[in-house]
């Protein structure tokens, strides 16, 4: 077993884990403390946009920012490149 294990190393996936966590944790932190309707709003916006453009769910970002006294609902949609649309 020892000899086999020496030659057959597991792939180095820790960096992948770290990157995925960095993104999901950041995303969940912005949603935290925000109103409960944000996830539903995001989902419904996604449905509407999908009628016209073929985008991934993670291409749509909905943020609620608080700036001195007033709140800004920020919606950003990353549109797919032309090539990707043709292929998809």
């Amino acid at each position: 077993m020892g000899l086999l294990a020496f030659f057959r190393r597991q792939p180095a996936t820790a960096n992948v884990a770290k990157e995925r966590l960095r993104i999901i944790v950041a995303q969940e932190r912005t949603a935290r403390g925000g109103p409960d309707y944000l996830p539903t709003l995001r989902r419904e916006l996604f449905e509407v946009i999908r009628k016209y453009i073929n985008v991934d769910p993670d291409a749509i970002q909905v943020h609620l920012e608080k700036e001195d006294g007033h709140e800004v609902l920020e919606l950003s949609v990353a549109l797919p490149e032309k090539k990707a649309t043709v292929a998809g």
């Binding site: 597991q10 820790a14 884990a17």
Partner: peptide, 18 residues
């Protein structure tokens, strides 16, 4: 050992994320 071989996140990684 698994941290050294890049199979497991390190203390610093977890600390940085959280």
């Amino acid at each position: 050992r698994r941290v050294t071989t890049g199979e497991m996140m390190s203390v610093e990684d977890v600390k940085e994320i959280l």
